[in-house]
């Protein structure tokens, strides 16, 4: 039979961006080990609603680790203790009866809190809008197999493209840098022939936008890649630095 547990939850509550927040403590009984972390929060919210209290707002959608909505720091670690796992895929069998768990939002200047655990990550969209694309209009007629791409490059491009844009890298970084996120997009496109034409302008514009949004700079703590639920390699940042340097000294 499945085990149940009683937990103490310490959760960041903040009514809106303009009101100060604080940690609040909740006791939750009857948590089943097979529940996901978010299902545990559903149970807490049902209880709070029934008790006439305000439930805890958190972003979530697909609940299968791919949409990148969920965004909470669990016991000091973005998405919680399990490597390569989003909060929605974390299951309560990771915990034991009597545990205390703290839950906080992403904290970064470029990710202002909207309410409780929900933050505004539109800065990521603006970084992509600055250059994270190939400028090709709909209607291209070149056959898909006209340009062979070596499997190694294609696989590396896919490794970078796997980023889900959740922002855990920023939340984990002591400087709130977005270099893993930006580097992953630059890396995805630079590994492919289609990304070559705009290679220089892309990295310059994306980095400029990143700085403009108020993200910090990388000082090699490597926490980002450690926290990344898709395990995007820290190489993305080395690649970003290299591409940025190259863009400053070349003209193509």
């Amino acid at each position: 039979m499945s085990k149940t547990m009683t937990l103490t939850l310490q959760i960041w509550r903040q009514r809106s961006a303009n009101t100060p927040g604080s940690m609040q403590t909740y006791k939750l009984e009857g948590v089943n080990e097979h529940m996901s972390f978010l299902e545990m929060l559903d149970v807490l919210n049902a209880k709070l609603t029934k008790d006439g209290q305000d439930p805890v707002a958190f972003d979530h959608d697909c609940r299968e680790g791919i949409c990148g909505s969920c965004s909470m720091v669990i016991d000091g670690r973005p998405h919680g203790p399990r490597k390569g796992t989003t909060a929605c895929q974390l299951h309560m069998r990771t915990y034991k009866d009597g545990d205390t768990i703290t839950i906080e939002p992403w904290r970064a200047k470029a990710f202002p809190v909207i309410k409780d655990l929900v933050v505004d990550r539109s800065s990521f969209d603006r970084i992509v809008a600055a250059g994270g694309f190939v400028s090709v209009n709909t209607g291209v007629t070149v056959d898909a197999n006209a340009t062979p791409i070596g499997k190694k490059n294609a696989d590396e491009a896919m490794d970078y493209a796997a980023c889900i844009g959740c922002g855990a890298c920023v939340a984990a970084c002591p400087n709130a840098a977005a270099m893993l996120f930006t580097g992953a997009k630059v890396g995805h496109l630079v590994k492919l022939p289609q990304g070559q034409v705009e290679r220089r302008g892309r990295v310059l514009r994306m980095v400029e936008q990143m700085d403009h949004e108020g993200f910090g700079a990388c000082t090699n703590h490597r926490e980002c890649s450690e926290a990344c639920p898709k395990e995007i390699s820290f190489d993305a940042i080395e690649l970003l630095n290299r591409e940025y340097m190259r863009a400053q000294v070349t003209n193509d």
Partner: peptide
């Protein structure tokens, strides 16, 4: 058939064989 062409042109990293083809 046009969709695949379009997506490859955008840089969608479809799986490839060792010869570099899709």
């Amino acid at each position: 058939v046009n969709i695949i062409d379009q997506c490859v042109a955008q840089g969608v990293p479809f799986a490839r064989e060792y010869g570099g083809l899709l």
